[in-house]
């Protein structure tokens, strides 16, 4: 019997695939203080789902397109009159609302919205796995290629410009990577919890890391642990899998910070 025939194996592989891309990208989300940026992009995905269903194209394509539009819009609008958090709040929640309304117009199809809001990792197919791992590989390649430039831009845009880099271009790279992660993660944790998978492992890793690279690695490890633990726990306690994964990640975050509090010298 093929190993991939087991839905539990597929679920674990799907989760690990998402974590592989989300954890390093999440580090940039934390460093650049764009937590709500992730939220806005993720919420736009619901609108993408609705549009994809009405125009009968693949959900992945619809979500990717909308997430990309949202990410680019927000990064271009920033610094033009409104404070960033206001702008993100408006776009995130209005696109979620429009998405929910739009889904109700989709004729004939009974759409299980819960599956898109919270994901359904246990229903991941072999096709989904291919999409997830391709997306994750793309994001990782993008981050690896631009790593040094992204880091310099994150540190200080003027410093980056003086070194011949373009902060605008690096912001674009991050936007594209974010849209990709949202598009591949929607099946696994759903739109409401994608931001959690970006943020929580990265935030937990901060206590243990001395260099940016180490932080990205540790975040990936913590993310992987959350996926394995979450699927295990969901199976044992018969709880929804996506939220359980996030719960485990949150517990690790709490423990990591407790450990730091007890040993304040280690940074």
């Amino acid at each position: 019997m093929n190993l991939l025939d087991d839905f539990l194996v597929r679920a674990i592989l799907a989760g690990l695939g998402v974590v592989l891309a989300a954890a390093p990208l999440g580090c940039f989300v934390v460093w650049r203080r764009m937590a709500y940026f992730g939220d806005a992009t993720a919420h736009a995905a619901i609108l993408g789902v609705a549009l994809a269903l009405s125009f009968n194209v693949s959900i992945f394509a619809g979500v990717l397109a909308l997430a990309l539009i949202m990410a680019l819009t927000v990064s271009n609008l920033s610094g033009r009159g409104f404070a960033m958090d206001t702008l993100l709040g408006v776009t995130a929640h209005s696109s979620l609302a429009f998405g929910l309304v739009a889904v109700s117009f989709v004729p004939g199809v009974r759409v299980d919205l819960m599956a898109y809001l919270f994901g359904d990792i246990l229903a991941v197919s072999k096709g989904d796995l291919a999409v997830i791992w391709t997306g994750a590989a793309l994001v990782l390649a993008l981050l690896y290629w631009r790593w040094s430039a992204l880091l310099t831009t994150t540190l200080n845009p003027d410093l980056a410009i003086a070194s011949g880099l373009s902060p605008k271009r690096e912001q674009m790279v991050l936007s594209v990577a974010l849209a990709l992660v949202v598009a591949v993660a929607i099946k696994v944790v759903g739109t409401l919890l994608i931001a959690a998978m970006l943020l929580i492992p990265a935030a937990s890793a901060r206590s243990f890391a001395r260099t940016p690279e180490r932080m990205a690695l540790i975040a990936t490890g913590i993310g992987a642990l959350s996926v394995l633990g979450g699927i295990e726990a969901a199976f044992a306690f018969d709880t929804p899998t996506g939220p359980t994964i996030v719960c485990i990640a949150a517990l690790i975050f709490a423990l990591a910070n407790l450990a730091r509090l007890l040993r304040p010298q280690t940074r």
Binding site: W31, R33, N156, A203, T211, P212, R214, M215
Partner: peptide, 10 residues
């Protein structure tokens, strides 16, 4: 140059 405390950097 402000370095965000969330960014570990030697």
């Amino acid at each position: 140059l402000h370095i965000d405390p969330t960014l570990p950097l030697t």
